[in-house]
Amino acid sequence: MSGLEWGTVPAWLSSFLTGGSLLMGFHILLRDRKKEERNEALKVVIWAGRDANDEGSFIRIHVRNTADRPILYVDALYERVDGSIGRWHSDVPMVLKDEEMSLEVPRYMDGSRTIARGISFQDSDGFRWVKDISSHDVYRQSWLRRGDPTARLLVSSIGTFRMYRSRKKRLRRA
């Protein structure tokens, strides 16, 4: 025979299927790793406390770490009247397992009212996370990817979904 021998159709098919199964295995490993990282971030519990009078000078955000490892650099996120998200830095560098801390965000800044939206923190692996107070959902912050690739329709109305989506993007960029 002259030239190259290309093999048979079953040999080609088995090599193609082997490559596909390897790719699927790597995809499953990466998906499980991301799920474990997200589950650690979901174990951080937050809530906003109110004073006896609703017109107090501070909004108190409570943070409790129920994860197995400490969280670092906890910051409060608040929304201004113009829709921009601000960051209020805390003095506590680390929240250990089963510890609780509170952040006091001024209710009024520059003469306008602020609304507490969530917290931003870093986990022990170095990933930065944002946790929303109202939905208790967590978003992983990334400098390379600003948008959210997994658009999930959490509510039925399109207008509310757009509002949720825009707030989620603003929290990621904060």
Rank of each mutant, 00 (worst) to 15 (best):
D148G: 11
G3D: 11
L22R: 05
Y164A: 07
W88E: 07
D137H: 13
R128Y: 03
S15K: 07
S157W: 02
M109A: 05
V81Q: 11
H27L: 04
R173L: 08
K97V: 10
T18D: 06
G19S: 07
S2P: 00
S134E: 14
G83M: 06
G147M: 05
D110S: 08
N65G: 09
V95W: 00
V155Y: 03
E40H: 06
R117A: 15
I115A: 10
A41W: 03
R38I: 05
M163D: 13
L144H: 12
G86A: 10
L4W: 12
K35T: 09
N65L: 02
A41P: 02
R162G: 04
L4S: 05
G19A: 11
P149L: 01
Y108G: 01
I115Q: 12
R145S: 13
I115V: 14
L23M: 10
R107M: 06
T160E: 10
G20D: 01
L144D: 10
R146Y: 01
S21F: 07
S134H: 10
M101Y: 04
D125I: 01
L171P: 05
D110A: 07
G159T: 14
S120V: 02
R145L: 08
I133S: 04
E40P: 00
D148Q: 10
D51F: 12
Y78F: 15
R50F: 00
G86H: 07
Y78R: 02
R69V: 06
K43T: 07
L42Q: 13
H136E: 12
S120R: 15
I61Q: 05
F16V: 08
L13D: 04
V130I: 15
L30Q: 14
D137F: 13
I158W: 08
D137V: 14
W143D: 15
R33L: 08
K131A: 09
R165E: 14
H136Y: 07
R64N: 02
R146W: 08
R128A: 05
I61G: 01
S157M: 03
G20Q: 05
S21G: 00
D82A: 05
P93E: 09
S142P: 00
R162Y: 07
G19K: 14
D98Y: 11
L42I: 04
M24R: 14
M109Y: 09
R107L: 04
M94W: 08
R140V: 02
Q122E: 08
R167W: 02
W12M: 11
L23A: 10
L30K: 12
V81I: 13
T8C: 03
I71F: 05
A11Q: 15
W47R: 15
T8N: 03
H89W: 03
H27K: 08
G19L: 13
A151F: 09
D132K: 14
S157N: 14
I133F: 08
V92P: 01
E55I: 04
L23W: 05
K34Q: 12
P10N: 06
A174T: 00
A67H: 12
F58R: 02
R140T: 02
E100W: 01
L29R: 10
K43L: 15
D123G: 08
I85P: 01
L23G: 13
S14A: 08
K34H: 10
I158L: 12
S166M: 09
A174D: 06
D148H: 09
A67Y: 06
L72N: 10
E55V: 03
R170H: 02
T18Q: 12
